[in-house]
Design a protein around this nucleic acid. Structure first.
Lengths: 337, 337
DNA sequence: CCCCTATATGAACACGTGTGCAGATCTGGT
DNA sequence: ACCAGATCTGCACACGTGTTCATATAGGGG
């Protein structure tokens, strides 16, 4: 009954297989086998062990198991700043999806130096994979993971690197659909609220939209860049109203489109009679009464499915070649076009 | 140079301290010491080791360290369904806060049986703590954690149980402030959009509001329960407009208040001239142009600070007595009251 | 020269688990 | 009664780490 460490600040350690073995009157190996389906073990003995385990709240320590080569089932998710609604919805769905298949997401939020340090620290754990939902410091992360043989899955942007799987929307095609929509409504004086240049999808959506307009012989009458927040959409639209006359406007995401709706209404415009508004993403808010935004759905469920299947593939065969999955947007017609 | 397991499906294992020791020409112990600040180790040798480690991308396996009694720094966060904006914002902030102090959140989303199973699985890891942001299956979780000596911190609801710390807003007092606000504006015919009964804060906010009204000699002219979504706020307000005449309305959260704004405007009411609207939480959207909702701030930063300091306290002294931290709401005056 | 101390180093152990191995027991067929 | 095979069980090892322990080396004061 010796207590090697009478340190009062230390928590009583959790029950171990040896503890269970003792009170169940069996060997430690038997306890391990009781938790291993298909292992040879007397039925009556197994029940006795599980009962004892339940009493103590014992479960095998997943980390100790890792040392024998078992998968950790821990997956790092680098979520970035999550400043806009779409990012939050997508991350929440991804977490739920991982949970559903028995993978446990260790989530890193934020950016800059804090995130860099966080990623480094998290890599001290034996991760099954790293999922990137933010592009910041991506190349450093990829390099670190590659040294550690940790598969990387990028979602929402393309990262060209060895061993990185990509899941990304066909932004170009989707934005072209927005142009079709406005043209078919007979809109001819079109404005654009774009995004910041440091995000890959911004350029794809812009060029896709311009391409689509071109197919209908249309060009932009005005353009202003926001930063994907609602406030910036409001502000951008105010500026556009000052300098140009337009009857259709495409915003590179829904948050900005909702800002645009506010600015147009405050300016006395009637939607969609005076101006058609088309957004991008189909966030929850776009469905709300009083908003009912026409938009292009950036399909979160498809994204999660693709990430999970990519994860499966990579775990089954670590040497599998890189794979890029491109997702298709769907037109959602509501009341603003 | 023997390969005990030529299994092609198995990933090449990460570098270990022994690998680093070999290429640096030192003992394995020296490698461990190189990563332990303050340990006796020749300066030149330490540099050589760190260089070799960097080359291999080596970092000590945090889980193996756990076996010697080190903290895992893993913290489970049970986030629930995250159906409304406030939950998403609060969870994102909590994750970022944990990251900032070197704790790594393993996030569980969802509810029901899936969540129950998920919690059980996650408890196989040696967690530093369990943070609850959802009340569903709370009592089961608390019992499991108590057996495993894992401290539990509940945020957003009070859980009366041994070893559980609580962080919770003073909902009653805050809702009473909303009543003051409406009364001071001279509103006399007041309606309420409440929440579902299975959430503790709902009752506190309702009784606090009624109490506040009573202090001004006012009573409700109408009441309808929503489910904390914007759609339900819109619907509830429509119903209230059918059956009662009111000039002030309090909604138990901002999402429903925003729905109420939509319903009131669609009914031709002018805000705040005809009707004052007060929400609860101060989500990001409440600040948006075109919304500018008057509301009561449910202070996320304070919540995160309280959770972190509770975590600190619990880790420093596992036998510390339970602690309940009550947070204060702040009145945010904008354009709807 | 010796002695004491501060510094440096590697061997060995402990942590909790899964599993290979060898031995024990049981089953059923001749 | 005997043997082959199936079923069961415990011992011992490996996994990657931090730390104690004993030992070795260097430095400084007498």
């Amino acid at each position: 009954m010796k207590r090697p460490s009478p340190d009062i600040t230390k928590r009583k350690p959790r029950a171990t297989a040896a503890d269970v073995a003792e009170i169940a009157g069996v060997s430690r190996s038997a306890v391990s086998r009781a938790f291993t389906p298909g292992a040879y073990l007397d039925q009556e003995k197994r029940e006795r062990i599980l009962l004892a385990a339940h009493e103590l709240g014992y479960q095998p320590n997943a980390l100790a198991a890792t040392l024998q080569g078992a998968r950790s089932n821990l997956v790092a998710v680098f979520a970035g700043e999550m400043r806009n609604e779409y990012d939050k919805e997508a991350t929440a769905a991804l977490i739920a999806g991982l949970n559903a298949v028995g993978k446990w997401p260790v989530v890193i939020a934020g950016g800059g130096d804090t995130a860099r340090e966080a990623v480094t620290q998290v890599l001290r754990y034996p991760l099954d994979a790293m999922i990137l939902r933010s592009g910041s410091i991506a190349s450093e992360i990829v390099e670190l993971c590659s040294k550690l043989n940790i598969p990387v899955i990028a979602s929402g942007r393309i990262i060209e690197a060895k061993g990185v799987d990509n899941i990304c929307l066909l932004n170009h095609d989707a934005a072209a659909l927005a142009a079709d929509l406005l043209a078919e409504r007979g809109r001819s004086r079109i404005a654009l609220v774009g995004g910041p240049g440091d995000f890959g999808a911004t350029g794809e959506r812009r060029s896709g939209f311009l391409n689509g307009l071109d197919r209908h012989g249309l060009t932009l009458v005005g353009e202003y860049a926001g930063n994907y927040t609602t406030e910036s959409g409001y502000f951008a639209t105010e500026r556009l109203l000052e300098h140009a006359e337009f009857d259709g406007i495409f915003c590179a995401n829904d948050a900005m489109a909702i800002g645009a709706l506010g600015a147009l209404r405050d300016a006395g415009k009637c939607i969609p009679t005076d101006v058609s508004v088309v957004g991008f993403d189909d966030i929850e808010m776009a469905r709300w009464p009083g908003v009912r935004l026409t938009t292009l759905r950036n399909p979160i469920d498809d994204m999660v499915d693709a990430v999970l299947s990519s994860l499966d593939r990579r775990l089954a065969d670590p040497n599998a070649s890189e794979q890029t999955t491109r997702l298709h947007a769907e037109i959602i017609l509501r009341d603003t076009h």
